[in-house]
Computed example of a mutant assay.
Amino acid sequence: MRTALTDLLGVEAPLVGFNRSPGVVSEVSRSGGFGVLAATMYTPEQLDAQLTWIEQQVEGRPYGVDLLVPGNVAHGDPADLLASLRAQIPDEHVRFVDELLERYEIPARSRPHEQGGELLANFDATGVEALLDVVFAHPVALVANALGPPPATMVERAKASGVAVASLVGKPEHARRQLDAGVDVLVAQGTEAGGHTGTITTMVLTPEIVDLAGDAPVLAAGGVASGRQMAAALALGASGVWCGSVWLASHEDITPDSVKRKFLSASSSDTLRSPARTGKPARQLRSAWHDEWERPGSPAPLPMPLQPMLTGDAWDRIDEAAEAGHPGATALESYYIGQVVGAFAELAPAAEITRRMIDDCAARLGELGRLGAESAVRV
């Protein structure tokens, strides 16, 4: 299955597996796809350790890294950016979260929450450079930026290292900006996807981006969790697929079991796009958390990075309590997930998911080829 993407990255199949779990990333690469580590909440030291571990597992096979580098870094006192940002969170929002947790009787964590370094690494200019230092000290084949055009320094360093640069787009105008910034691979992410998305569907967006991309490979993302959907993306002109949600149904994924149980019982209509977790619209499993933020009189979510700073401790408490079976926490529990969650029937090894998608895609493409040949004979 050879495409412009497989030629660029040196992989067997045009399947990119995006996940925050090193175990998933390594298994995707070991199984013929291309694993990408979602490194949006790592300190440089943590990222170095994760990449070192992945390299030991993939044994020379290519893999990539996805960073969250916003176009505008956080603004505050450079001497103490974390405290400066916290001071910008209104008391009204702090009270709202405290009262919400009290109403659902969420207990305190067994260990205090210590948020800071991993968040600032992605929003402080100095922290971003430190993360890039780690990335380019490892033999990555691709680096992606999760929010907007990548900074010039990322593109320059990638080009100098022979590393491909990818970036997500949700509109045609996004693609134009990304190409102007020097991006090599465009990920056309439809609204069906989990995490931060726009409002255009994958079926509509992918051919629009393909028509704009020229020689740059385009990956379809959003609503791709099977070989049939992978084949459909290739039929739209994509050079491959970028999959995230499907790995949340794998054994290797580190999402808490309490969340995975909710995934397995959810339908495709049980997700929503909401800024209530990060400050930007992100698709996730709907829960009582979102109902509370949408009630009349509730405060509007804060912009990124203030909203995750406001809610970080709350989510740690919810996750821990839900894992212990706490009913209030279970009602609030959620995570980022695309509409393909409705297809989740059981958990499986990431390698099995990878191989099944690749094999089913090849089978479907073969069926379509035979259908085309039969149609030509009839004509």
Rank of each mutant, 00 (worst) to 15 (best):
V135E: 01
P112E: 09
L119T: 13
G71W: 03
L82Q: 09
L119D: 05
E156K: 14
L85Q: 12
H113V: 13
L142W: 01
V134W: 00
P151T: 12
E92H: 01
F123T: 10
G170C: 13
V140R: 06
L100S: 00
E114P: 00
P112S: 15
T126H: 08
L142D: 05
M154T: 11
K159H: 13
V165G: 00
H93F: 05
A108N: 07
P107H: 11
P149K: 07
P78E: 01
D91L: 08
V135W: 03
A125L: 14
G76Y: 01
K171Y: 11
H138F: 01
V97E: 11
V140H: 01
I89G: 00
L142V: 05
G148T: 13
E102H: 09
S167I: 07
R157N: 07
D91E: 15
L120W: 12
H93V: 05
P107L: 09
V135T: 03
V155R: 02
A79D: 13
G76V: 08
G148F: 12
V163A: 09
G117P: 11
G76M: 08
L101R: 02
D91G: 14
H113E: 14
N122P: 02
V94F: 02
E105I: 02
K171T: 13
G170E: 01
E99I: 02
N122C: 14
R109P: 05
F123N: 09
V97G: 07
A164E: 11
V143Y: 00
P150D: 10
L132Y: 01
E118T: 12
A125P: 14
E102N: 05
E129P: 01
I89P: 00
D98E: 15
A87N: 14
D124C: 07
H75L: 13
G76E: 06
V128S: 01
L120Y: 09
E156H: 10
S84N: 06
A108T: 08
A83R: 13
P139A: 04
N145G: 07
L132H: 02
L100H: 02
S110A: 12
L68H: 05
P151Q: 10
A137M: 02
N72H: 13
P151S: 11
E156A: 15
F136N: 04
R86F: 04
Q115C: 06
V128Y: 00
S167K: 09
N122S: 15
P112M: 10
I89M: 05
N122L: 09
P107Y: 11
A108I: 00
A166S: 15
E118D: 15
A83W: 10
K159R: 15
L147T: 03
R157H: 10
G148Q: 10
A79T: 12
A125R: 13
A164F: 11
A130W: 02
P90H: 09
V143C: 09
L119G: 06
